[in-house]
Amino acid sequence: MQLTLEFGGGLELLCESVKIHEVTVDLEAEETKLTMKQLLSWVRTNLIKERPEMFMKGDTVRPGVLVLVNDCDWELSGQLETMLEDKDVVVFISTLHGG
């Protein structure tokens, strides 16, 4: 599954200062869809190079991190349960830095 992942608000510093990642996430053989929960753990393993606690807390994002799936707040799509599809765009922005 191909996804576009964007990191902003300082989060890009955790993944080698790259803001936009075009990625291919391989699904388990029996699965056809990917949830945000699965994506988060994939991101943590594959993209986050330092200070993962700045990105995640428990099995979800740290409070203050805004998540948009296709430009829509993930609170409206079920947060961790949000089902992703091929070519979706997922944006992570930290609101925790200075204004």
Binding site: H21, E22, V23, N70, D71, C72, L76, S77, G78, D88
Partner: peptide, 30 residues
Amino acid sequence: MASEVAEETPKPRGGRFCTLCNARRAALKR
């Protein structure tokens, strides 16, 4: 990592309409 950029805007997940205009899809929660 693949590098193909999506040409179209992907559709929004979750289907509710905006409670104010009732015409467009809701994108955020106040």
